[in-house]
């Protein structure tokens, strides 16, 4: 007789195996439920990607992904983060070079909508900040450097505006975006490359002074004020000077 643990491992492996015509009909119900529920989860998290490539194509790639990388967390809102990279590595990416970036934008919006409700950092907090500290990125924040045409395609597809979609010219230059929901409503903001680097550095937990030194002291106060106004951070944490890492340059 199987132990419960062995039975469950064996049953799970059968559910995730490539289906055959010999699957007993009871097992087939569970296999179809698992694949159906997980592909539906991806469908809800990637609405523009779904509309861009169509239901049949989406389900084909989603099912492959589900079998290769099933969820590791029971909160299915967290499932799908690796799907854009999966699409980027697929043969589909050769035909639609902007596809993975559209999927990344879908995921960033989904992430922002389901992140913990946290107020943005009040700039007044910095008046009493310790001498050395680093910022805590807002939990809804994503920083994405996407192809410039991806955001326009994403918006046109979601609005089902075929005329606008047809008029979008290929543009693989980089658009540095922040996507966040610090005050209840979703924000998608394009930053300058220098501001994006600063945002990425600070939101990654690198300390303030070396990061600001990179863009020059004259612009530092203005740049920091702008990022604070966007609600990029949810708090600060003190750091000992001798433990400071170098910013990622």
């Amino acid at each position: 007789m199987y132990s419960l643990r062995d039975r469950q491992k064996k049953f799970q492996a059968a559910l995730l195996a490539i289906s055959t015509n010999e699957t007993p009909n009871g097992l087939a119900v569970y296999r179809n439920n698992v694949r159906g529920n997980l592909t539906l989860t991806l469908k809800l998290a990637f609405p523009a990607t779904l509309k861009l490539i169509g239901e049949d194509c989406f389900y084909a790639y989603a099912e492959q992904f589900v079998l290769a990388q099933p969820p590791r967390n029971a909160d299915l809102h967290l499932y799908g983060e690796a799907f854009p990279a999966y699409l980027a590595a697929s043969t589909l990416a050769g035909q639609l070079p902007y596809l993975a970036d559209v999927a990344w934008l879908d995921w960033a919006v989904h992430h922002a909508l389901h992140a913990a409700e946290t107020p943005p950092l009040d700039p007044q907090t910095l008046v009493h900040a310790p001498e050395s500290f680093s910022f805590i990125g807002h939990p809804s924040l994503s920083l994405l450097a996407l192809r410039r045409d991806a955001q326009a395609i994403w918006a046109a597809v979601l609005e089902e505006d075929d005329n606008r979609l047809a008029g979008i010219l290929p543009d693989d230059s980089v658009a540095p975006l922040i996507i966040l929901r610090p005050r209840g409503s979703l924000e998608i903001i394009e930053l300058s490359p220098a501001m994006f680097d600063l945002a990425l550095t600070l939101a990654s937990g690198f300390p303030l002074d070396p990061a600001l030194a990179v863009i020059g002291e004259e612009e530092a106060a203005q740049a920091l004020g702008l990022l604070l106004s966007y609600g990029l951070f949810s708090g600060i944490t003190p750091k000992a000077t001798e433990e400071l890492p170098c910013p990622p340059r």
């Binding site: 049953f11 997980l38 099933p70 967390n73």
Partner: peptide
């Protein structure tokens, strides 16, 4: 699900 995997169905 088993061993940290979650399959989104009541098995």
């Amino acid at each position: 699900g088993a061993d940290g995997t979650h399959l989104a169905d009541l098995l």
